[in-house]
Amino acid sequence: MAPKKNSAKRPQPSTPKPSAPARIVKVQSSDGHILQADVRALLLSSTLAATIKGYDDENKPLEKLEVNNVVGFTLKLVLEWCEKHKEDDPAIAQAEKDKKNIFIPSWDRHFLTKLPMGNLFDLITAAYHLDITGLINYGCKTVANSAKGKSTEEMRELFGIPEPWEQPSTSTATWDD
């Protein structure tokens, strides 16, 4: 006799909760690139959230948001991060901000560490201008992690610090030996 197939319904993979249809708006970078983004993702930026709220309060149609201090390539990265985190509770990022040791989830770790340092700098700076707390937290933690175990010479190279240190005291006399 063939084994009886389990006819009970297996648990289905969790599906996203039904939510309001995505409201897509255009976002224009400082160098004229136009990208599209879900408003929920944009609300992670306090700066953009205030602008969106302004439009909504006045019942104006929001067709295009202009981000004047972020170039297209960086803005694309910002929007990619925001899209991934659009379901996040902003309070969590705010609470993490005060932590001494921030944990970076694997997706974010991969996303941030794959970037060349120059792009990471632009991304963190953009997150700062757009006031995206979660991205600032993870970005700064990534920069701090990159300094771990580095000597002064290696840090100079990593952070592009050209000026050599003048060695004035006994405590540093052997530093470059």
Binding site: P116, M117, G118, F121, T125, V143, L158, F159, G160
Partner: peptide, 10 residues
């Protein structure tokens, strides 16, 4: 390419 840490806002 280095990351210009010292150019970050305070």
């Amino acid at each position: 390419m280095p990351i210009a840490l010292l150019k970050f806002p305070y």
